[in-house]
């Protein structure tokens, strides 16, 4: 079973005198404050671009920066002409063959750098909205995600923007006075509408932001069925029932998840 690289507990204890292992003991505590996201930051994804002509985006100085997810774009002429600002979201994809325009990305206060921009023969550029703590938006696979989400949203009468707006309204009203540390929550939507957005609690300034971007270096990740999440946001369903039902799932630092849930619901 345990072999070469495995050190039995006793051995580990002997080796680490200064750091003993105690079974069900209650040694002196060592209180550690969570490090800010910046310290735990990740390195950005690569920006692949083949035959890109004007792909280079103006990337904001990102305090917590991370590079954005890729922006693949094939035949993205139409998709990219949609103003990101209106959708409040960075455009899903930038897959574009023979695109011509380039994107101007907004200055992000704590911006994560956007995931890589994979672009085959890219050209089109979009003006991306300024994100306060922006993570650049989840990958922009134009052919699949965005169009599909739009399609389904028409059918259901709900759009990605409406989901984010509803979440924003809900979380901006949250009582975060008891939250002492920053909490970064990434929300992955699936079902009738797909996409990602984030919620960020700035405990120092007692502010909360909800923005239509993916947050890679999250503390908590929610994966939710869009309709279920909307029902929760609108008060039609209890959040804990939704969690118990499995249509809303949480991963990451669970204590922080409870704090943000309790603050908002």
């Amino acid at each position: 079973m345990a072999k070469k690289n495995i050190v039995p507990e006793e051995t580990a204890q002997a080796v680490a005198e200064a750091a003993p292992v105690a079974e069900t003991a209650a040694p002196a505590a060592e209180v550690q404050e969570p490090k800010p996201a910046a310290k735990r930051g990740r390195k950005p994804a690569a920006a692949k671009a083949e035959n890109a002509e004007k792909t280079e985006e103006k990337k904001p100085a990102a305090k917590r920066g991370r590079k954005p997810a890729a922006a693949k774009a094939e035949n993205a002429e139409n998709t990219e002409k949609k103003p990101a600002a209106k959708r409040g979201r960075k455009p899903a994809a930038a897959k574009a063959e023979k695109a011509e325009k380039t994107e101007k990305k907004p200055a992000a206060k704590r911006g994560r750098k956007p995931a890589a921009a994979k672009a085959e023969t890219v050209g089109t550029a979009e003006k991306k909205p300024a994100a306060k703590r922006g993570r650049k938006p989840a990958a922009a696979k134009a052919e699949t995600a965005a169009p599909e989400a739009k399609k389904t949203s028409r059918k259901k009468g709900t759009s990605y923007e409406e989901v984010v707006a509803a979440a924003k309204k809900k979380f901006l009203a949250a009582n975060i006075t008891r939250i002492k540390y920053p909490i970064a929550v990434n929300v992955e939507l699936s079902g009738s509408v797909s996409g990602e957005f984030y919620i960020y609690v700035d405990a120092d300034n007692q502010t909360i932001a909800v923005e239509p971007y993916r947050y890679d270096n999250y503390d908590v990740n929610f994966r939710a069925d869009t309709d279920e999440l909307l029902a929760v946001i609108k008060g039609k369903k209890n959040i804990y029932d939704a969690l118990a039902g499995g249509l809303v799932k949480v991963s990451g630092i669970t204590t922080k998840a409870i704090l943000i849930i309790d603050a908002a619901f």
């Binding site: 505590a29 209180v31 969570p34 002492k180 540390y181 409870i258 704090l259």
Partner: peptide
């Protein structure tokens, strides 16, 4: 990791 706990939790 043992760190500050939350009374609310």
């Amino acid at each position: 990791l043992i760190r500050d706990h939350s009374p609310r939790v």
